[in-house]
Simulated assay, not measured.
Amino acid sequence: MWNHVQAVLFDLDGTLIDSAPDLGAAADKMRVDRGMPSLPLAAYRHMAGAGARGMLGIAFGMTPESEGFADMREEFFRNYEKCMTERTYAFDGVAQMIQSLEAAQLGWGVVTNKSMRFTDPLTRQMPLFSSAAAVVSGDTTPHAKPHPEPLFEAARRMKIDPQSCIYVGDDERDIQAGRAAGMKTVAACYGYLGQKADTSHWGADAHINSPIELLKLLGRG
């Protein structure tokens, strides 16, 4: 479909890895520590893409404007740091997809809004990321998605034209950022998405229901 593509950039949580179990566990520990009943993972999963804001919203009904939110967020962060690779795994088909990209001599990288505090140790501990040509976090540049600057930074690190990249993500912000960077965009419809997400309104160039479907778009499937 896209013969000019030289590299593929991916969002992290909900696109390459399922981190919802560890994110949910970090928030649920806060409930249990306060004598509240545990919630099932299913309660947290759909908001995993929203990070601390989403997890604290589910666990305690908090918003960033709530009193004490900053302290609760830091407690969540500490919990998450202790467990962030215990239950996190790559989605089915991701490893095969990456191997196929490498076999086709296509570069790949990660652009996430997750902060370096978590992205760096997580990607170091998961062998999947050893061949990533770039890993850009939400605080690597002065801007986070949907601003295109993190995508531009990844392209610079890979020494390629942004217009030769495609960006794959499971959030509307990913598609907005990719379009702003002049990249082809792919909506990962198997990701977290959120309760009210309608990917048909995002303006993505393509939609996939599994990682392997990306290879078909690239003529590699």
Rank of each mutant, 00 (worst) to 15 (best):
residue 4 H to V: 15
residue 6 Q to H: 15
residue 6 Q to S: 12
residue 8 V to I: 15
residue 9 L to K: 05
residue 11 D to F: 04
residue 14 G to F: 13
residue 14 G to V: 03
residue 15 T to I: 01
residue 18 D to I: 02
residue 21 P to N: 06
residue 23 L to I: 11
residue 27 A to T: 07
residue 32 V to M: 09
residue 35 G to C: 01
residue 35 G to L: 12
residue 42 A to S: 15
residue 43 A to F: 02
residue 45 R to T: 12
residue 46 H to Y: 15
residue 51 G to H: 05
residue 54 G to L: 00
residue 58 I to H: 04
residue 67 E to S: 11
residue 67 E to Y: 08
residue 68 G to Q: 07
residue 74 E to Q: 12
residue 78 R to P: 05
residue 82 K to G: 02
residue 83 C to K: 02
residue 83 C to D: 15
residue 86 E to M: 06
residue 93 G to H: 11
residue 94 V to P: 09
residue 94 V to R: 01
residue 96 Q to Y: 08
residue 102 E to C: 01
residue 106 L to C: 08
residue 108 W to Q: 10
residue 108 W to H: 02
residue 112 T to E: 09
residue 113 N to Q: 10
residue 115 S to D: 10
residue 117 R to A: 07
residue 123 T to I: 13
residue 130 S to C: 05
residue 131 S to M: 11
residue 139 D to F: 06
residue 140 T to N: 05
residue 142 P to Y: 01
residue 143 H to E: 11
residue 155 A to D: 14
residue 156 R to K: 06
residue 156 R to S: 11
residue 158 M to K: 15
residue 161 D to S: 13
residue 161 D to G: 06
residue 163 Q to W: 13
residue 166 I to Y: 07
residue 167 Y to C: 05
residue 171 D to M: 10
residue 172 E to I: 06
residue 174 D to T: 01
residue 176 Q to K: 14
residue 176 Q to H: 15
residue 178 G to Q: 06
residue 179 R to C: 07
residue 181 A to K: 05
residue 185 T to N: 03
residue 189 C to Y: 14
residue 192 Y to E: 13
residue 210 S to G: 10
residue 213 E to F: 07
residue 217 L to S: 05
residue 217 L to I: 10
residue 218 L to A: 02
residue 220 R to P: 10
